[in-house]
Structure formats: C-alpha cells, structure tokens
Design a protein around this nucleic acid. Sequence first.
DNA 1: GCATGCATGTTTGTATACAATTAGGCGATT
DNA 2: AATCGCCTAATTGTATACAAACATGCATGC
Lengths: 243, 243
Amino acid sequence: MTTFTKSHVTGPAYGASGDKPSRRRPGPTRAETLATELAEAITEGRMPPGTTLEEERLAAAHGVSRTPVREALRLLAATGLVEQRPRRGAVVARPEPGRLAEMFQAMAELEAICASLCAVAMTRADKARLASRHAGMAKIVEDGWLDAYRDANVAFHEALYAGSGNGYLAELADATRRRLAPFRAAQLGGRDRLAASHEEHGAIVAAILAGDAPAAAAAVRAHLAATEWSWGVLAGQPSARQD
Amino acid sequence: MTTFTKSHVTGPAYGASGDKPSRRRPGPTRAETLATELAEAITEGRMPPGTTLEEERLAAAHGVSRTPVREALRLLAATGLVEQRPRRGAVVARPEPGRLAEMFQAMAELEAICASLCAVAMTRADKARLASRHAGMAKIVEDGWLDAYRDANVAFHEALYAGSGNGYLAELADATRRRLAPFRAAQLGGRDRLAASHEEHGAIVAAILAGDAPAAAAAVRAHLAATEWSWGVLAGQPSARQD
DNA sequence: GCATGCATGTTTGTATACAATTAGGCGATT
DNA sequence: AATCGCCTAATTGTATACAAACATGCATGC
C-alpha cells in the first residue's frame, strides 16, 4: 500500500505550463510525482469519478512522455483510486454503490480498532495532545468555519490512526479514507451537523482518555454511522457521470 | 488494492524457455501476468525477501521487454510485496521486525472483524458450508498431512473473509495475509500444533454458528495469538538475506 | 598504508517508435 | 428501414533507444 505524502508533492506542477524542470530532485521520480498529483486531484474532487484518463493528454498536460504516465496510472490503479480496463484505458474509479457501502463499513471498523488501540497504547502525553487538538476545534465549530473544520476533521481522524501505534493499520485506514474522499458530499451539512460531529469526537476522546477501549470503539462506530449521510455513499453516485 | 487471482495465472510462464506466446490472450496484459507470477513466486517463498529484482534479468527470463517488467514491479510495489528505492532498483520487500509485528496485529484485527460479521451476516447455508469445511479438515489433522493442512488452513481463513459479506474488507485481509506469507515458518510446527490449530478453528466456527459476534472475534484473536510463533514475525528475519 | 578522487560499467529513468486492438462510422445487403 | 460487415481513426501495449545516476574498482596523493 503506497502512501502519497504531501512531502512528495512538488507544487502545482512545473509541467502545467509546459516547461520541464531544470534542477533534478534526487528522490522522487516523474512517475511518483505524477501519481501524487493525480491522487490529490482525484481526492480533492478536481477529477471526479468516471473521468477518463487519457495517457497522451496527461503526458502533454504534465510535460512528460507516456511512460511515466503509464507507471503513475498503474500505481494509482493498485491504490484503488483508478480503474484500468485491459485495453480500454483508465478512468477515475467509480465503485458500485454496494462497494462504497462496504468500504465505508470497513473504514468504520478500521477506525474503531485504531481508537481501541489508542485507548490502551497512547502515552499520557499523546492523550493530552489529542485532547487539546479536540479542544482547539471547538472554536472552529462556534465560528461555523466549514472548510477549516473539514481539514481539522481529517487531521483529527489521522491522529487517531497514528495514535494506534500501528503504522500498518494506520496506512490501511488512511488509504481507505482517501479512496472514499471523492465521494464526500461537498458540504458537511450545516452548523448543526458540525456541532454534533464535534460532540461525537468528544465522546471518542473521553473514552480514549479513560482508557476504555470498547467504549472508544463504540463511540467511533456511532460517529461514523451519524456521519454516513454526509458522504455520497448511500445517496447513490455523486458529482460526475461522463462515460 | 489489486488482487491477484489464480485465474490470472497462465501457467509456469511461457517465457521461462525464451519463446514468446504465439496466441494472444484477450484480457490480461503482459504486465499483469508478470505481476501475478512474481507475486506467487514471492508468497510461495521461491523469491525470498531481500532478493534483488533486476529489470533486464526479469525481462530476459520472461521473454518480454523491460517496459512490462517495470509496470509489474510498480504494481507489486503498490501492493507492498516489493520495495522500490528511487534509483537503486527493486527488491522483494523485507519489512522491519517491528513492522511485521504491526502487520500481524492488523491481520488479527481484520480477521476478528470478519469473524464478527460472519456471525451476524452469514446465511444458514453459509454457516453449514463453513462447518463442513472445518469438519473436513479433521481427517487431515489425524493423518498429520502438513502440506494439505497448510492449504486448507488458508482456504478456511479466506472463507472467513468471504463470509463477512464485505468484499473490500476481505481484500484488505487477503492482501495482508499475502504480504505476510513470505514470513511464515516453513513448517507449521508439528502434529500437536496442528491439532491445536484445528481446535481453535472449532471455537471460531462454534461462535459463528451461535451468532455470537464478540466470541467469534475473541476466538480469532486467540487463534492468531497462538499461531504467531509459527510465523517468522517475532523470530526476527527468516530465510533470505542477500543484500 | 590509507583515504580520496576519478573513470568506467552497470542499472534505472525517460522518450520515442512501432504493433495491435478497440471503437465508431460508413456503406452495402437483406 | 434495419442490420451486418468492413474500414478507418484513435488509443493502448510493447519494444527499443537514449540519457542520467549510482556503484565499483583503480590510480593517485597524502
């Protein structure tokens, strides 16, 4: 499971304007850079599910040849963000509604496990950090800052993954969340939902602070069950439909 | 998460003797075929962790050019079976001992979830099939047929994944098991361990038949905790060391 | 004698050229 | 008029060629 860390991203892409990079970075290869960029474009909704990914077009758009493009697509296909039909090209993955529901359930369970582990494995300092992170989100909720809450929310959940102490598990959860990202409803609902979400977070944090693993798992499941509607998962296909 | 089904495998590889295939299969591309073959070679221990995967050598061995080889390696890298260092080539993945432990724990939790879901989601017919599968393994245990038990054991666990009714979760569990496969101790221990394993399976089956999800989860965790030593996970690195 | 620098070979990364399959449209036939 | 078949265009799959980076060994200097 390859993860695409922000550190791999080199910016808005040199190739957007057609020029190639003069200085060569040591680490990341073109294919990886491309994969990261495409992954972001997909998860952020700029390339909605169903979008066809034509190799030559992508190559031209990023100022590279088809070879790295193909490798990037293979990478994304293995990640699940892209679907490759044998000789019919690649498209941004658009899972069946049933499969989306499966992924959502799996994510809930993965997060529940993470929270359980947090409850028993986190150091006192870690728990304090988590609590303060949660506390910091209160102001965002009061102000009704939707975009900021969305980011902070992702960060909160990723803190849960990291706090499990199990990096592999964290990667699974993160990858699943990323694969579901294109199906989030654009807006999280409204201020009421924001407050409710924050309150549910509070229950999770409390359980973790108390070291109560089963309660933490239950709180996570409840939180995600309540969140479900704010994803496109059960509402049928979202945004794009262009095949 | 791309899965490598047996149906994709076309045999011991035409390229082993250098000749290219005359008839062209419609579906799978060379890269996918290659990826499947390599994945099997790795999970079956024929290419132990640490083995260097030189592109040209692989290309020659399989009678193809470097291009599909590279794509196959990318695929495997995304799957986690292979590790690609930016400009230093690819090797069969050899995770740190700590990471192996994480993967093992994650697998235990994933299987526990699957078993829980089995308990509540399986139809009566499914449960009967699972029970009969388990019963069928008794004879293998009596005869001490180690190899056969190994295969049947994998099939049993995969039946658990499938029985969860959550295909995505099943894929996660399966992929994790595959990634851990190269680190299994060659022999499962002995006849005593065989019998113990079978008995633990019995506890799992019983809990599922009874529809007792928590008991099923607990039984799975107990089973894997008992199995742990038969994997190379905690015993440090296994088989190969050739870098 | 040891360390450092350079030269060379090997291997990966990228680009381009070619082959083959698929998709779509046009025409002929029933 | 509808359907079948073929033909053409577009796109993917594969191979090869070129360029850059890493690794190794040797020679040179200290």
